[in-house]
Design a protein around this nucleic acid. Structure first.
Length: 280
DNA sequence: CGCGCTCCCTGGCCGC
DNA sequence: TGCGGCCAGGGAGCGC
């Protein structure tokens, strides 16, 4: 269930065991995920030291040591819709599942299994200096938790747009990292109707939306982080999210603010949940 | 160019 | 219990 908070939680869990370690052994058990893996994928990662883990939007970026005088090699990972990273002690795993597509171990004896039933996930290797121009990263908008994501920035990004607010916030070039769930949650918190056209929402209301986006993401990350174990990987399926969401997945339930039933509509082929009384 | 729709793939769940 | 239909959190690509 990876949107920004789940990806960030996964990044933190991986960082605890990977930073400073070498990738001892790695195996790609099929040649492709969403797209073909890059040439010599496993061979290019095996034996390298992990310098750090970063996140951009919903992408995890693993920085790999690349020899003296050369820039770092970046291992990009996207979890897609069903991707999970399972972190376990004890070396190469004994049991390997049907959808365990990439498996690797560290020199400290931990294993990581990338499992992705729907295979919408992706991995790539990015050469030194090519991060900013990478096809999947170059058009991304601001990180919602960055100081650069301000009401003024959002107002400018939405100016003149004739698309509904729901679709606009799903557009990763407007703000990078929100997905279907947190868009519903943020619009509910900000009291903005999801069908309202983005370019027509008043600056005053967008002023309120920006801190609500930051707040809901920070709360979700805190909820995920609090459930982090150092080996059972958190991927958001632990149950703590059901109670976290105020409208998402709550069609027909009473609105937490006014008690009227939460409604579900379909926009651009995806479910949106909202309260028709509180969101105008 | 901006927008909405369709599709990629697989599994889980619901109703019959 | 089996089966068909529907649903799923991402996002690229295409057509209008």
């Amino acid at each position: 269930m990876p949107e920004l908070p789940e990806v960030e939680t996964t990044r933190r869990g991986l960082a605890m065991q990977l930073e400073g370690r070498k990738i001892a052994r790695i195996e790609a058990r099929r040649p492709d995920l969403r797209w073909p893996l890059p040439r010599d994928f496993a061979a290019r990662i095996q034996g390298r030291r992990v310098l750090g883990l970063e996140r951009r939007a919903k992408y995890i970026l693993i920085r790999l040591e690349n020899g003296p005088g050369q820039g770092d090699l970046i291992w990009l990972i996207h979890l897609g819709m069903s991707g999970r990273m399972l972190l376990r002690p004890g070396g190469w795993p004994n049991a390997i599942g049907k959808h365990d597509h990439v498996i690797f171990t560290t020199d400290a004896g931990w294993s990581v299994t990338f499992n992705d039933a729907r295979r919408f996930g992706a991995m790539d290797l990015i050469e030194p200096g090519e991060l900013a121009s990478h096809k999947l990263l170059r058009d991304l908008g601001p990180e919602p938790l960055d100081d650069a994501f301000t009401p003024a920035a959002l107002i400018a990004a939405l100016k003149g747009r004739r698309t509904p607010m729901k679709s606009a916030l799903l557009d990763q070039s407007v703000v990078a990292g929100l997905g279907n769930i947190y868009v519903s949650e943020a619009l509910f918190r900000a009291g903005i109707h999801p069908e309202r056209l983005a370019g027509c929402v008043s600056p005053k209301r967008l002023q309120r939306l920006v801190p609500e986006i930051k707040q809901v993401l920070l709360e979700a990350i805190a909820a995920g982080g609090s459930s982090l174990r150092d080996y059972v990987q958190s991927d958001g399926e632990l149950g703590y999210f059901q109670t976290f969401f105020r409208v998402y997945g709550h069609e027909g339930d009473p609105c937490p603010a006014c008690g009227r039933p939460v409604r579900r509509i379909v926009q651009a082929g995806r479910s949106t949940f909202f309260c028709a009384a509180c969101q105008t």
